[in-house]
Amino acid sequence: MIIKTFLADDHRLFRDGLRRILAETADIVVVGEAIDGLDALKKMRLGGWDVALLDVSMPGMSGLEVLKRIMDEDPKHRVLMLSTYHEDEYAIRAIRAGTSAYLTKNSPTDLLISVIRRLAHGGRYIDPKLAEKLLFGLGPSSTMPRHSTLSNREFDVLKLIAVGISLTEISQKLKLSAKTISTYRARVLEKMGMQNNAQLIRYVAEHKLLE
Rank of each mutant, 00 (worst) to 15 (best):
I2Q: 04
I3K: 02
K4D: 06
F6L: 04
R12K: 15
L13F: 13
F14Q: 07
R19S: 13
R19D: 07
R20G: 05
R20E: 11
A23L: 09
E24G: 11
A26K: 15
V30Q: 03
V31S: 05
A34Q: 03
A40H: 00
L46W: 10
G47M: 06
V51Y: 00
S57K: 06
P59Y: 02
K76L: 14
L80D: 02
L82E: 02
T84V: 14
D88Q: 12
E89C: 09
A97I: 07
T99M: 07
S100P: 00
A101S: 10
N106I: 10
S107G: 05
P108S: 11
L111M: 14
V115M: 03
R118T: 09
R118H: 10
A120R: 01
A120S: 08
R124S: 11
Y125N: 10
Y125E: 07
L130C: 12
L135T: 14
F136G: 12
G137V: 01
S141W: 13
T149Y: 13
L150Y: 01
S151N: 11
N152L: 10
R153K: 14
F155H: 01
K159G: 01
G164F: 00
S166D: 09
Q172N: 14
V188E: 07
E206I: 06
H207G: 03
L210M: 14
